[in-house]
Design a protein around this nucleic acid. Structure first.
Ligand SMILES: [Mn+2]
Ligand SMILES: [Mn+2]
Ligand SMILES: [Mn+2]
Ligand SMILES: [Mn+2]
Lengths: 220, 220
DNA sequence: ATTTATTTTTAGGATTGCCTAATATATTTT
DNA sequence: AAAATATATTAGGCAATCCTAAAAATAAAT
């Protein structure tokens, strides 16, 4: 079965919202994520239900099916592989890739993705630290914590960001936080949740809770 | 102004038909090229006229405008650059690239194309020997003749093919004709226009007129 | 110069994907 | 439990892109 670009985008949004811990995904949430109106979402949910990529009962809620998950993961795989390509091969900055990958993820060609994967040397993570599903849709997820939840003196390594907007990513570039950086919590301010961290045993960075909660760390 | 994918495809078809020597491009020709119906073409011509990428008078004919040419050449540039990428970097065969490039040519990102061009080392020709327009839409065209129009004992170099269908390209692979090959006409059969050529002073190939007329040569 | 054939356009319809406004259902408050 | 609020769906519409069938314009043949 072939999905349209719009259907692929909806399914991806639904998958992400489902994985985000929330029990049920609401029409309003999807509308917000897709930047369109709830009425449009209702239209699309009916169609996705008919195509059996979600299980949908009006007014009750929806659940993504196994088939739907496979489609979503395939699109996510393509998105993240293209992001790696743009950064590794075309020297894009990590804050410049998302919009283009959003288009490239809809190019339909199994051969293309297989070759791209090989060309990039089968990367496991995208430039934002997000895992790249394999061709069967398997994702290797690592136990990650938000930086603001760590305690003073704990150490770890930055492995991903939860916000991929250019503004946030450029800010991280500016202060010197990057994927792969080894960090240690030097201080936490009770009052506002801001933290001070040591990066690579060299540089001290002070950041607000708003920033810290979008940085994901593997503790060590 | 932004063109839709469909508009870009129509404009490309119109450009190619215009360059094909024909004085005026007919609605039927466009429909054939686009593999849809003349009625649909009429719809689109009105729209392209309103956007001033063609000059269109009902029942009379149409002419692509300078603006239209720029858009068409931009799309052609993208198509051909992607074809080079697929062959040079992802090891696609030259008969496998067209369909994918047909999709990739519509990805919208000036930065992407600029970087891709640099990454490929500013190629001047695509895998089928067609010239790649520069970022300003300038095309360096070379004087080429169809192989079947050459006389016995004349020599030259294969520089392009006029047919890019997989069946034709795979046939050329099989018999050993390729872009860049130095050739000499050994014999021509008056009766059916078939020719015998010597490739790289080594191999003799016999081909029908139907094949020969789709092979373009620079004479030397 | 008519008639005939071809080409092109218009009329009307389907599908996709979005919208606003109105309605229906579910949830929360009192 | 009823009323108020929040959430979700339907009704009706619009734009894009395609279609078939009918009508109009042009070109070709007699
Ligand atoms: Mn997308
Ligand atoms: Mn990413
Ligand atoms: Mn195309
Ligand atoms: Mn080509």
């Amino acid at each position: 079965m072939e999905l349209t670009v719009s259907e692929e985008n909806y399914l991806k949004a639904i998958y992400h919202l489902s994985e985000g811990g929330k029990k049920s995904v609401s029409t309003n949430d999807i509308a917000a994520e897709m930047k369109n109106k709830p009425a449009s979402v209702s239209d699309m949910l009916r169609k996705l239900g008919e195509k059996e990529v979600i299980e949908y009962r009006k007014y009750y809620g929806l659940q993504i099916t196994e088939t739907g998950k496979r489609y979503a993961l395939q699109t996510i795989r393509k998105h993240r592989l293209w992001e790696v390509f743009l950064v590794e091969k075309l020297n894009f900055a990590w804050d410049e890739v998302h919009e283009v990958a959003e288009q490239l993820e809809h190019i339909h060609s199994p051969l293309l993705i297989q070759r791209l994967d090989a060309y990039l040397n089968y990367p496991k993570f995208d430039p934002h630290g997000d895992p790249i599903p394999d061709e069967f849709g398997d994702v290797r997820s690592r136990p990650r914590v938000q930086l603001n939840e760590m305690e003073v003196n704990q150490t770890g390594q930055i492995v991903a960001v939860e916000d991929s907007t250019p503004a946030f990513l450029r800010y991280l570039d500016k202060v010197g936080a990057y994927i792969g950086a080894r960090i240690k919590i030097l201080d936490k301010v009770e009052f506002d949740g801001s933290v001070e961290i040591l990066v690579d045993q060299k540089k001290t960075i002070f950041m607000s809770k708003d920033v810290a909660c979008n940085i994901l760390v593997i503790q060590s």
